[in-house]
């Protein structure tokens, strides 16, 4: 049993109809923005549809956030949420289903139909796991196909699972799954792994992992649940079948920006375009963190974006 977490709770708190700043998404970017907003004398509201901390909650250990040599993603999430709450930032557990960013007052509509207004909007919706987009993936989602090792690893205790992907997330999640499952087959389209060497070494040293490199997953098959993957060797086109009990997919992310389509400028992959002040094509609407077009998507860069965005938001949109 794991510990007890309070999380970023919005308990019995009355949500107002207006905030100086509404931050959509409560990942490290959104929480940092809330902290800077309070420090700048503004009233912020963080709206988070799952729980605060965002993708950090799916991360077993974080070893590159200064101040903590190693910390669990859940604990860092808790600490950040607590920090913002302690400063008096309001938070709300709800999903934003649409925005109207045209006027001077920006409007945010929640899943409940409620509308809240703000002078400044901060888009901090982050990213979600990218899907494989192969036959069988949809049918078997929840029947052996998973995108979250910390959520679902438990169900594969003693089993043989595939991990698709060879980057940092795939390596980190493999290390987590190794504590639960019997065997892991890593499938990666490139001919080598791309994750940090330190992580790769730990994965290889486990002795419980085999590799199918230079190969693409073409299909997921089974009867009532996942039983095998169809894998194609990129050089020869040869198809092989790999028997497994489950498959965890870590092949990168896609931006959570459907909300913004037609409202602010996005690049062709759906990432939000911002200027050096982190402001989008619409004045008063800022974009920060993983949802933004950039090279490096990390906790530190999400927090950095937030600091820059709030600095300019305060200067340019409040007197």
């Amino acid at each position: 049993m794991n510990a007890f977490e309070v999380g970023g709770l919005n308990i019995a708190k009355k949500i107002k109809d207006y905030y100086d700043v509404i931050i959509i998404g409560g990942g490290p970017g959104g929480i940092t923005a809330a902290i800077y907003a309070v420090q700048g004398g503004l009233s912020p509201l963080v709206i988070e549809r799952a729980i605060e901390g965002g993708q950090m909650n799916n991360t077993e250990t974080i070893e590159n956030w200064p101040g903590f040599k190693t910390i669990s993603g859940v604990e860092l999430s808790e600490r950040m949420a607590e920090h913002a709450r302690h400063f008096g930032a309001d938070s709300l557990n709800s999903e934003v289903t649409s925005i109207d960013a045209e006027g001077k007052l920006k409007k945010v509509i929640l899943e409940t139909g409620k509308m809240i207004e703000a002078r400044v909007l901060v888009i901090a919706t982050g990213a979600n796991p990218r899907k494989l987009d192969v036959p069988g993936e949809g049918v078997f989602s929840g029947k052996g196909v998973s995108y979250c090792a910390t959520c679902d690893g438990h169900f594969f205790s003693g089993k043989h699972v595939a991990v698709v992907g060879g980057g940092n997330s795939a390596m980190a999640e493999t290390l987590y799954l190794l504590k639960i499952v019997r065997k892991i087959t890593i499938i990666q389209d490139l001919l080598k792994l791309t994750g940090d060497k330190m992580l790769q070494d730990r994965v290889k040293a486990s002795g419980k992992v085999d590799f199918v490199l230079g190969s693409k997953v073409r299909g997921i098959e089974g009867d009532e649940k996942v039983e095998r993957l169809l894998v194609e060797k990129s050089d020869t086109g040869e198809q092989i079948s790999v028997d497994i009990d489950g498959v965890f997919v870590f092949i990168g992310t896609t931006p959570n920006s459907s909300l913004l389509r037609g409202k602010v400028d996005l690049n062709r992959y759906g990432y939000v375009l911002v200027d050096s002040k982190m402001e989008t094509s619409v004045p008063g609407v800022y974009g920060i963190g993983d949802v933004v077009e950039k090279e490096v998507r990390q906790i530190a860069t999400a927090a950095g974006d937030a600091a820059v965005a709030m600095h300019h938001a305060i200067l340019d949109h409040f007197d």
Binding site: N2, G7, I51, G53, N57, N93, C151
Partner: peptide, 12 residues
Amino acid sequence: TTSCPYCPKAVL
């Protein structure tokens, strides 16, 4: 599961 970040919302 108690480590699932999406679960509280589904329950609530």
